[in-house]
Design a protein around this nucleic acid. Structure first.
Length: 649
RNA sequence: GCCAGUGUAGCUCAGGGGUAGAGCGCUUCCUUGGUAAGGAAGAGGUCAUGAGUUCAAUUCUCAUCACCGGCUCCA
């Protein structure tokens, strides 16, 4: 007998060799029907594998990430089986799970192309196979046998994968007519899979390397119940309605014009108000944190970027230098603000007493992103960073870093971003030539970030090889409506630029010392931040931020003059009001303006004109009764103030 | 840059080998209406661009460009 400890710490005895499925069966038959996989002493396994020793277990259902992952992983195998039967001779790459489903990278037989129209057929085939409840079996296999198996099958990608694996650790999974190299775990059988949607086809380089062959990637998602699939599809439709490109157009926030150029956003009047409010907000916060605003040109001498190292690294993939009438003179559109700020630091000798110097600029930069990368406002070729550079003494670094994290928290709080991920990006230790700067400086910088995050109790994940070429960074990532992750706030520690620019300060010892530099942008860029904000709020911005705070609706044209008077009065109190003076009935005006997400609708007619008042409607909440214009101005002013002071504190 | 898909009015979309349609929006007129769509008339399109097939192409084929979904990249 062995002892099995359940998550509630209760202990049950079973025969040696008991399986997860049998344990579930012993608890309840319903559980046995729903359970998908099992963790045995922390390792996720198949339900059908025997447990031979005392163990702590957890059964995974659909509600667990682990359960879903098992489910989708098996679904990928099911899809591969269906594809192999429909397209014999297909070679298989990898078929992992993702946040919402799974994919499989395949190499179709010569001359075959998979298109959207083929997906329904594959779905049908998968359903047919699933209905036969094919059992999934696991085999441990020697490296030699694995190589032979996939050589016979003619799967060069699998052979490449096996070559990198260690003998004795290799397993395959088999169902129906399909065998795959796989670590597992998997469902007991394919009968669990009841609803299938293959979502898209894409190209993807083998092993993520641009130089390799491009395989066909088929994405899909599956569910244990048809109803769950239907709910998912509804959710997907809802998410598409939040797309910032769609809302940006509807709310007239920004646009693009082919005549101006690809990836060059044009901010419309309402979008400009939104952006200016964000800038105003951040400037105020930064002032409190001791920042000083500066302004620098949009171009700089090529030599500046040679000094910084950016030209060598990115020069050929950038907007190319601008020539002048003078032979040999070349300027570049600035791809970042740091070199300009370094020159401002050098403007005069700096004492240790002057540090830290915190230099902020809403600096517009130009980067020639590959055409396939452009995406709404999230990936553009001209964008404005809420940039700042902190020049500090080494002993001030951690404190300054912590303060930047505080600023980011203030912003996230003001805009109700709760669901973010913090990522520490370090150097790839196996590929050091990609980076500039000494090992010693890199280690110092990396440790500073790691320590600061630990001190803030920030939950982070660490990625090797994701650092900037001049230093490690801490990024804050937020997901858009469709679950794609975007980097917003970023903080980077840099020992390199101060060295390359020869930055110095005079220490208390009257000797020259080198400052450390922090690059930081809490929004990341105004463009990307607004994009993510739109998707986060679905266009219902908080009152303090929204372009139109109030719309005044005259009952008839007779009251347009009064509406104008109210509008003027509100504008004096810094309230952004517009008038809907169209020749329409009040019901129509209410409907149209409710749909525009304007927080307050003011209805004015005979009664209001007589009493110098307004009838107030809160968006989505209906009639709120009437009040005097002064009272309303005060009321709304207070709401704005409350929203902001909540964030500051 | 690479793979697949899409491209018809300002927007959302229908149509289809014989040179175009709806709803919304826009303009004008009627109506001056009290809390989620009042009525009428009108303007607006080289059917993305270029080539090919055809008596005839917006429709079929190819190329290009743009957009969309991914991959790679992201200072």
């Amino acid at each position: 007998m062995i002892k099995i400890t359940l998550p509630d710490n209760s202990v049950k005895e079973f025969d040696k060799g008991v399986t997860g499925l049998e344990i579930a069966e012993a608890i309840s038959s319903r559980l046995a029907k729903e359970v998908l996989s099992i963790s045995v002493n922390g390792e996720i396994r198949d339900l059908t594998r025997a447990i031979d020793t005392d163990a702590t277990i957890k059964l995974h259902l659909w509600d667990d990430l682990e359960g879903r992952t098992t489910f989708w992983h098996s679904s990928a195998h099911l899809m591969a089986e269906a594809i192999e039967s429909s397209f014999p001779g297909t070679k298989f790459g990898i078929g992992p799970t993702v946040d919402n489903g799974f994919y499989y990278d395949i190499d179709l037989p010569e001359g075959k192309v998979l298109s959207d129209k083929d997906l329904a057929g594959i779905e049908q085939k998968m359903l047919e196979l699933a209905r036969t409840k094919e059992e999934i079996t696991r085999s441990e296999i020697s490296k030699a046998d694995a190589l032979k198996l996939f050589t016979d099958k003619g799967d060069p990608y699998k052979i490449e994968l096996i070559t990198d694996l260690q003998d004795g650790t290799i397993t395959t999974y088999h169902q129906g007519n399909f065998t795959d190299l796989c670590r597992g775990p998997h469902l007991p059988n394919m009968g669990f899979i009841k609803a299938i949607k293959l979502t898209s086809i894409a190209g993807a380089y083998w092993r993520g390397n641009e130089k390799n062959k491009m395989l066909t990637r088929v994405y899909g998602i599956t569910f244990p119940k048809q109803k769950l699939l239907e709910e998912y599809l509804v959710l997907l439709e809802e998410a598409k309605k939040r797309d910032h490109r769609k809302i940006g157009k509807e709310m007239e926030l920004f646009t693009f014009s082919a005549a101006v150029g690809l990836g060059l956003p044009l901010w419309l009047p309402k979008g400009t108000i939104l952006r200016e409010q964000l800038e105003k907000f951040l400037k105020k916060v930064q002032k409190k944190f001791g920042y000083e605003q500066v302004i620098t040109p949009h171009i700089g001498d090529v030599g500046l970027y040679k000094t910084s190292g950016h030209f060598q690294k990115y020069g050929k993939d950038s907007f190319q230098p601008i020539r002048t009438p003078n032979e040999g003179e070349e300027y570049m559109l600035k791809p970042m603000n740091c070199p300009h700020h370094c020159e401002i630091f050098k403007f005069k000798p700096r004492s240790y007493k002057d540090l830290p110097v915190r230099m902020a600029e809403f600096g517009t930069v130009y980067r020639y992103e590959q055409s396939g990368e452009l995406h709404g406002l999230t990936r553009v070729r001209s964008f404005t960073q809420d940039d700042a550079h902190i020049f500090c003494r080494p002993d001030q670094l951690k404190e300054e870093f912590l303060k930047v994290i505080d600023i980011i928290f203030i912003i996230f709080k003001a805009l109700d971003f709760k669901d973010y991920a913090a990522q520490i990006s370090l150097r790839d230790p196996n590929n050091k030539e990609k980076y500039i700067g000494s090992d010693e400086n890199w280690e110092k910088a990396e440790n500073a970030i790691i320590e600061a995050c630990a001190e803030k109790g920030l939950k982070t994940k660490t990625e090797l090889g994701e650092a900037a070429f001049y230093g490690p960074k801490l990024d804050f990532m937020i997901k858009d409506a469709l679950g794609r992750s975007w980097q917003l706030g970023t903080i980077q520690v840099d020992y390199n630029l101060p060295e390359r620019f020869g930055l110095e300060y005079i220490g208390a010892d009257d000797k020259r010392h080198r400052p450390v530099m922090i690059h930081r942008a809490p929004f990341g860029s105004m463009e990307r931040f607004v994009a993510v904000l739109i998707e986060h709020t679905a266009g219902k911005f908080p009152l303090w931020l929204t372009p139109d705070q109030v719309v005044i609706l005259p009952i008839s044209e007779k009251y347009n003059d009064y509406a104008q008077k109210v509008s003027n009065q509100l504008n004096i109190s810094d309230i952004r009001a517009v008038i809907d003076d169209r020749n329409e009935k009040i019901g129509r005006k209410i409907r149209d303006n409710e749909m525009k997400h304007i927080p307050y609708l003011l209805i004015v007619g005979e009664k209001e004109f007589e009493s110098n008042s307004v009838s107030v409607r809160r968006q989505g909440e209906g009639d709120q009764g009437s009040m005097s214009v002064d009272a309303f101005a005060e009321f709304i002013g207070k709401e704005v103030k409350d929203q902001l002071s909540e964030a500051y504190n």
